[in-house]
Amino acid sequence: MNEADRDRAVELVQQAYAEGRLGATELELRLERALTATCVDDLRPVVADLPDETVRLWSVGGRLTRTGHWQVPRRLRVESEYGRVRLDLSRAHIPHRRVDIELRLTYGHATIIVPPGAGANTDGVHAAWGRVTCKIPARSRLGHLDVHITGNLPYGSLTVRASRM
């Protein structure tokens, strides 16, 4: 088991509490079980009944584009082997204060455009032969969107910038 598995379980439990699906006692119990888990099998019952709304976008050689008024999920996983990815969040409907985007780009380039005032943390992105360029602060202004980007780009690159609106 790696730390990402444990972190993911803790985050799901905390999100369920914030949404009112768990009480304080249940929160404490589940957090303790998640933090003391020694294998992935120990984590499964902690989050088994909690929804995970990860949306997966996938392409082998084409383009993945989301622009305009699209519904942004809480968690988005984008996989592209040779294509280009463009996610424009500037006019999208985002019902969350935080959005997690996981990128898996073998080759190619991803561009993520965030609304004014948003922050983007790219510390979790590993680019072996590519590059990561983030032109905005890692933290948002108070009350604005926070985008957390993680993933692996062996030969790909990522650019994160603010909207030009």
Rank of each mutant, 00 (worst) to 15 (best):
E26A: 14
E28M: 01
A24M: 13
V60D: 07
P51V: 11
A4N: 07
R164A: 09
L50K: 05
C39Q: 06
I94F: 09
C134N: 15
N2H: 12
L12F: 06
T36L: 12
I112F: 05
V10P: 08
E19L: 14
L43C: 05
G117D: 07
L35E: 14
Q71Y: 09
D146H: 12
L35Y: 04
I94M: 11
P95R: 14
P73H: 01
N152G: 01
V10G: 06
V10E: 12
I113K: 05
P115N: 00
A128P: 01
H93C: 04
A138N: 09
V55W: 06
P51K: 05
V78G: 10
K135N: 14
I94N: 06
D7C: 03
L89M: 15
L50D: 01
T25C: 00
A127W: 01
L22C: 12
E19S: 12
V47D: 07
E3W: 02
S140W: 00
L89R: 05
V13L: 07
P95Q: 13
A16V: 06
S59Q: 11
V114Y: 04
P115Y: 03
R84Q: 15
T122N: 02
A9D: 11
T36F: 01
D100V: 13
W70F: 09
V72A: 12
L22E: 09
E79K: 12
